[in-house]
Amino acid sequence: MASLKALKIRINSVKSTQKITKAMKMVAAAKLRRAQEAAEAGRPYAERMEAVMASLASKVMVGPQASKLLAGTGKQDVHLFVVATSDKGLAGAFNTNIVRLARKQALELQAAGKTVKFYCIGRKGRDQINRYFRGQVVHSVEPGDLGKQVFANAGSVAQDLISRFDAGEFDVAHLFYSKFVSVLTQEPTEQQIIPVPLPATGLATGAAPVEYEPSEEDILMTLLPRNVAVQLFRATLENAASEQGSKMTAMDNATRNAGDMINKLTIQYNRSRQAAITTELVEIISGAEAL
């Protein structure tokens, strides 16, 4: 059995760990509220954007002159996985869940004979993907604090993606991120961003004629790149909220585990203390009796 002193040190160290995890939980809870508000505030824009894109895409003829961002390159050979994770760990399975989903789909595509490349946003995701798919990461960015993202950041990533697409580096781009459902639930999600997925409902021909200023093509030209940025930004916001939610849960668990550990160690400490006292008493008494 460990000595009393060793036990005491152990208890103290667990106690300070508990303090740290508790503080981290509080920080995450505070950040979560802000991130959640941001994610919810960003949803209307992305949803409207999707609706507008859908109505526009169904009206504009998909012909040879149509933008590649809408019609695709006509091939499905090279897939680019944009994996959005965070730069920081200690958030439970947040990063792992996103990477796992991406890995599963990548393996499926590879088994079907396609090429898969990765474009990583976030250090944690890059590290994990590098382990599984060495040499397939074409580029990675480290966004820093997810809670402080502005739309311009997503815009520059989107531009980079589009220029790579125009250069023919890939045919299809998928975006992976974690959708924030609630504090306890975050869903790793896959979404195709390039080319823009067409609504399955088919062409909406019955709707009232819509006037376009300037022309449909011009609007679509400005809209398509922006849509990529908007989807990326939405993913960032959702990720930020998910990260904090996941972190809060993880740190809450860690704090509770530390509490259990302290209880167990304290009992052990008290037992050994009593045992020591008893031994001492026995020694004194038997010594006195011997006199």
């Binding site: 507008v52 526009l56 709707a207 009232a208 004629p209 819509v210 006037e211 376009y212 200023e213 300037p214 011009d218 609007i219 400005t222």
Partner: peptide
């Protein structure tokens, strides 16, 4: 402020889309 000039929108405006 549309790209091709300002336009006012009242209730019942015809469907349109503009940058």
């Amino acid at each position: 402020p549309g790209t091709e000039g300002d336009f006012g929108v009242l209730q019942g405006h015809a469907a349109m889309m503009s940058t």
